[in-house]
């Protein structure tokens, strides 16, 4: 059962990674697309349409992560501590706390991407999107590395 939830968690994370990275790269690239190159096509999307997809994916990814977390605590963290892999436990602690803090950014992220805030909070909108992208990338990479060291039984 936990393996199935872990796989769903991973698939949701990959989808979220794609969505937030696409929006983030597009938002960071200020100049409008002029050619038909891959980069121009990639960045010339309507950034606003990603917002609710990112929120739903972030929430469901965190929820599925919260479901498998007790299994990690018992079956992965304890062996990490026995193997003196304190750095691995530390990486997961950061993943956990960054993920938890990312949740509180979601309402603000939705608000900042509304058309009314386009002019007044441009820097906040870009920065919060980049922070969310950083959290998603960090959590994805750390989860992947730790699962390679010792996966859920």
């Amino acid at each position: 059962m936990m393996i199935a939830v872990l796989i769903v968690h991973g698939l949701l994370a990959v989808t979220l990674l794609g969505a937030i990275t696409h929006q983030c790269v597009s938002a960071l690239r200020a100049k409008p697309a002029r050619t038909l190159s891959f980069v121009d096509r990639y960045t010339s999307v309507n950034q606003r349409v990603f917002t609710w997809a990112v929120v739903m994916l972030y929430a469901t990814t965190t929820l599925s992560g919260a479901i498998i977390y007790p299994s990690y605590r018992l079956n992965v963290r304890v062996p990490f501590e026995e193997m003196s892999l304190g750095w691995a436990v530390g990486l997961f602690e950061l993943k956990e706390h960054f993920g938890g803090l990312g949740l509180c950014l979601l309402p603000l992220y939705v608000w900042l991407w509304q058309p009314q805030q386009t002019q007044s909070h441009a820097r906040d909108r870009l920065a919060i999107t980049v922070i969310l992208a950083f959290i998603v990338w960090w959590d994805f990479l750390v989860g992947h590395v730790l699962n390679n060291i010792r996966g859920l039984p």
Partner: peptide
Amino acid sequence: NVLWTVPVAAMLICTFLM
């Protein structure tokens, strides 16, 4: 336009605590 500094500070404090 400085709202973003709060979560960044929170993440840095988390890193320091860990």
